[in-house]
């Protein structure tokens, strides 16, 4: 039961990260390949504040999230107005720097020996891990709701406009650079919050947890589900993490000697799924958010009733 709660909690973290990546990439077109870096700032920030400085867990999470926001803002100022490849490389480099610092700054982070123990809040309660999972569920549901509402909001339309044609959006009076910076910083800060909330799940923090595989897993989930649809991120996480990490790894009757192959088999399946999606359903399982319906003509146009308006 405890393992199931742990797995579902971890899946919720992945869903939350995928939602935030949907906002960054699906709506605003910012290719963040440093998801694990911002999540890691939250994870280790919370861990260090809690273990080393004795800050209570919930304030530690909030402070670590603010730190991730601030660092993301600085990174955004440096790279966000460059092209997609530069942003991709810079965010990936950021995640690598975070991971390297965690290993090298042993006094603060414990280095490869790890940092712990981070206990669940509400330690007096017997069902504290379940309560924490519900807390996580509330946070992730809020992120899903925000992500769903965002597309049809003024800010959401602005983000889509910036993604489609930044120069045109700027010529319409939108401060595109500032909008992108703040959206990136806030969403990265929320990634940090999810990192902070992952700290009591792991209880003991080790640098291995900051491997790029988390970033890739979230990206794969987003691409599989459909980057243009906020529910695509959820479907993608269910198809990848839910199917393999929970259902197969926990419940499939795999003999012990073959179980060691499961992680590799999982990556193989991810690859096959990704190739099939890209070949047969490039917009993901759920496709795009809005159907492109051509409405019927109801009244004759004033001047163009007989005119061709097609390209000449």
């Amino acid at each position: 039961m405890d393992y199931l709660i742990f797995s579902v909690s971890l899946m919720l973290v992945y869903i939350g990260l995928a939602q935030l990546l949907h906002i960054q990439f699906g709506l605003a077109g910012i290719p963040n390949f440093g998801v694990v870096g911002f999540w890691g700032i939250g994870l280790y920030g919370t861990g260090v504040l809690y273990v080393k400085a004795g800050v209570p867990l919930l304030p530690a999470m909030a402070m670590a999230s603010l730190l991730a926001t601030a660092l993301a803002y600085v990174l955004a100022r440096l790279v966000l107005q460059r092209n997609g490849q530069a942003i991709l490389a810079a965010t990936l480099a950021f995640a690598t720097i975070v991971s390297t610092l965690v290993v090298s700054e042993k006094d603060l982070t414990g280095g490869v020996q790890g940092l712990g123990t981070i206990r669940f809040p509400f330690s007096d309660l017997e069902q504290r891990n379940l309560i924490f999972m519900i807390m996580l569920l509330i946070v992730v549901c809020a992120l899903i709701w925000i992500s769903a509402k965002l597309r049809d909001s003024r800010l959401g339309r602005q983000l889509v406009a910036i993604r489609d044609n930044e120069e045109l959006a700027a010529s319409l009076g939108k401060n595109t650079a500032a909008t992108k910076r703040w959206v990136f910083a806030i969403t990265c800060g929320l990634m940090g919050l999810l990192g902070g909330m992952s700290a009591p799940l792991h209880q003991f923090l080790v640098p291995y947890q900051l491997s790029p595989s988390l970033t890739f897993a979230v990206w794969i989930a987003l691409v599989l589900g459909g980057k243009g649809h906020n529910l695509g991120a959820i479907v993608g996480v269910f198809v990848t993490f839910g199917l393999f990490d929970i259902l197969i790894e926990t419940y499939a009757p795999v003999p012990a000697e073959q179980a060691i192959l499961l992680p590799n088999f999982k990556l193989f399946c991810y690859g096959v799924l990704l190739v099939m999606i890209i070949m047969f359903r490039p917009l993901g399982i759920l496709g795009v958010d809005k159907p492109k319906v051509r409405s019927s003509t109801t009244t004759p146009p004033r001047e163009l009733s007989n005119a061709s308006v097609e390209k000449g």
Partner: peptide, 28 residues
């Protein structure tokens, strides 16, 4: 001046290509 300041100053620009946001509706 930055480009985003020009509409408030009274300037509207229609580029030759890529002049609509393809993923937004006509109303948007």
């Amino acid at each position: 001046a930055a480009p985003y300041q020009m509409p408030a100053a009274g300037v509207a620009y229609v580029p030759q290509e890529g002049n609509v946001f393809a993923d937004l509706s006509v109303m948007e």
